[in-house]
């Protein structure tokens, strides 16, 4: 029953953000990331945060869920922050010992980094919460289309991604089932040293790999039987289309980047 939770990250809802063209959401995320990196003072980040709050409000996703998405990278956030707290070279020293020192600038910079990272993660999660994996791969395929000119297999790549996404829940389910079956035969995955634990994985890994190969073979046959011949002469049922919502999102993204740049020019880089 793991599969229900891990189905992509998609959170079903009817909202402004859910209806946006996936390409636009990807571009918006890129704009957002650019903006957070261009921001060189707290005002810039606050502007980013404000735009994110707006986006969350228009997404129908519970605020708590978006905030909790940081949990996955919490360790990374704390680690980089701590590193900077102790090693950042600043002028106003509060405390120092050996090569470690805590400075006002270091504290500010750490807070800045942590905030930036948290914003990045939350905005990325927002994308996966509001976009089905299929729409996401369609979006990526469409955005990468220019690469076809240099013979980059865009279509094949997108298909591989969407099939992978489709089989992840199935394979998670299967892992769980095989683990249970081996546990019932006395396998122990929880105790023992590293060597013992690695060895305990073998009875799960081998059946899982065999099953994945078997599934791949059967899926290959099923695709062949349905006349799959690569991207040649292939049509596409779902066409992505820009609408007024997309224009709004586009303008917001553009405004955000401009705003951050203006803040940097007029307020100056304080970090």
């Amino acid at each position: 029953m793991l599969k229900d939770v891990s189905f992509g990250q998609f959170y079903p809802a009817e909202s402004f953000a859910h209806r946006l063209d996936p390409r636009l959401k990807i571009l918006f995320l890129i704009a957002f990331i650019t903006a957070t990196f261009l921001a060189k003072n707290f005002y810039g980040l606050v502007l980013c945060a404000a735009v994110l709050v707006l986006a969350v409000l228009f997404s129908g996703i519970p605020v708590g869920k978006v905030v909790r998405s940081v949990k996955g990278v919490l360790f990374l956030v704390i680690f980089t922050a701590l590193l900077n707290v102790f090693f950042y070279q600043g002028a106003t020293v509060y405390w120092s010992w050996w090569i470690l020192r805590i400075t006002k600038e270091g504290l500010l910079f750490s807070a800045f980094l942590a905030l930036r990272l948290a914003l990045l993660v939350m905005c990325s999660s927002l994308l996966t919460y509001t976009t089905t994996p299929v729409a996401l791969t369609d979006g990526i395929e469409s955005l990468l289309t220019p690469l076809k000119w240099i013979r980059f297999p865009v279509h094949e790549l997108a298909l591989i991604m969407s099939i992978a996404l489709r089989f992840i829940p199935i394979l998670i389910d299967e892992t769980e089932r095989i683990m249970n079956a081996q546990k019932a035969r006395g396998a122990d995955f929880e105790t023992g040293g590293l060597v013992k634990r690695v060895r305990a994985v073998v009875p799960v890994l081998i059946p899982l790999l065999l099953s994945a190969f078997r599934r791949a073979e059967e899926l290959g046959d099923a695709m062949d039987a349905r006349c799959y011949m690569g991207s040649k002469n292939r049509t596409k049922y779902k066409k992505l289309r820009f609408g007024w919502r997309d224009l709004v999102a586009f303008l917001t993204g553009a405004a955000l980047v401009t705003g951050v740049v203006l803040l940097r020019v007029f307020v100056g880089a304080t970090i």
Binding site: A184, R185, D188, P203
Partner: peptide, 24 residues
Amino acid sequence: FQYPEYQLFAETVQEDVAFGLKNF
């Protein structure tokens, strides 16, 4: 479990059948 043949993993039948025996 359902379709228990998909949990077989060892190189020989003897080894696979003995898996639970040794574990327990």
